[in-house]
Amino acid sequence: MSALRKNILITGASAGLGEQMARDFAARGRNLALCARRTDRIEKLRAELLTAHPGIEVAVRALDVTDHAKVFEVFRAFRDELGTLDRVIVNAGLGKGQPIGTGRFDANLQTANTNFTAALAQCEAAVEIFREQRAGHLVVISSMSAMRGLPRNRTTYAATKAGVAALAEGIRADLLRTPIKVTTLYPGYIASELSSRDSRGTPLMVSTEKGVRSMVQAIEAERAQAKTPAWPWVPIGFAMRHLPLRLVTKVG
């Protein structure tokens, strides 16, 4: 890690991976800026973290990331409250989706707006602050689904996650000669509210705690990109990239 990232903003912090990342970073003594639509849940999380780690600061704010103007407002407010934003984790996302052409454009559009367009707004707001500070670490949560196009309910989801991965790489390319770092994470099957409906019979699913621990380790190392957990997702990722599509579709 090139510098201590003391103040960390996490979107979608009210549940799942975001909630557990907050716990892991709090245990490392980091100050947190937590936002989500469900303020009752992040207020409860704030109380839990301050009880367990009284030496840290935890700021919370309501945020629907599809309200793009609000994204900029909330990020700047967190920066002003904590003094700096040292790391921003673009985590908020949606798993809703239906097969293309089956009359559910509404569901697919909602997923595209939340997972890509709203992620773009978060990246814009974060990097604007980092450019002003001349320092910072942007973390974008993609997915192993980004490796290839996937069928059925995962088609739009996989496309959005491939899109945010390309977005993060483009930002990284633009900032290569600056102190600003960019990390793209590709989580595999990690138990969360997003995955709970599809987790039955999934042999590669790991607990939220184990999966997030591997994510946090990769974030702290400020790696350009990482598949998490590394085993078995590094070899699976290679296979997904190179196998015939008819075999890759079995992942979906």
Results as ranks from 00 to 15, higher is better:
Ala173Glu: 05
Arg223Tyr: 06
Pro232Cys: 06
Met215Gln: 12
Ser207Trp: 07
Ile171Cys: 01
Leu176Trp: 02
Ala218Arg: 08
Ile219Pro: 05
Ala158Ile: 04
Ser214His: 12
Gly149Glu: 07
Lys227Leu: 14
Ala218Lys: 14
Gln225Ile: 00
Ser195Asn: 06
Ala221Phe: 01
Thr228Gly: 07
Ala226Phe: 06
Ala230Glu: 13
Leu185Phe: 09
Ala230Lys: 10
Pro179Gly: 00
Ala218Val: 07
Trp231Phe: 10
Lys210Cys: 03
Val182Cys: 00
Ala166Leu: 14
Arg200Leu: 04
Gly211Phe: 14
Ile180Asn: 01
Ala221Val: 01
Ala168Thr: 05
Ala173Asp: 14
Arg177Asp: 09
Thr184Arg: 00
Ala173Phe: 03
Pro203Met: 11
Ser207Ala: 02
Ala166Gly: 10
Val212Glu: 11
Arg200Gly: 13
Glu209Leu: 03
Thr202Ser: 15
Arg213Tyr: 07
Val182Ser: 00
Ala218Cys: 15
Ser195Phe: 14
Leu176Lys: 08
Ile219Asp: 15
Thr228Ser: 05
Met215Cys: 15
Tyr157Gln: 09
Glu209Trp: 01
Val216Asn: 05
Val216Phe: 14
Arg152Phe: 15
Ile190Met: 08
Ala166Phe: 04
Thr184Ala: 03
Gly211Tyr: 11
Glu193Gln: 12
Thr155Met: 08
Leu167Cys: 04
Ala224Arg: 08
Ser214Ile: 03
Ala218Asp: 11
Ala221His: 05
Gly170Met: 04
Thr228Cys: 13
Ser192His: 07
Thr184Leu: 01
Arg200Trp: 11
Ala230Ser: 11
Ala230Ile: 07
Gly211Met: 11
Ile171Ala: 00
Arg152Cys: 13
Glu193Ile: 04
Ala162Arg: 03
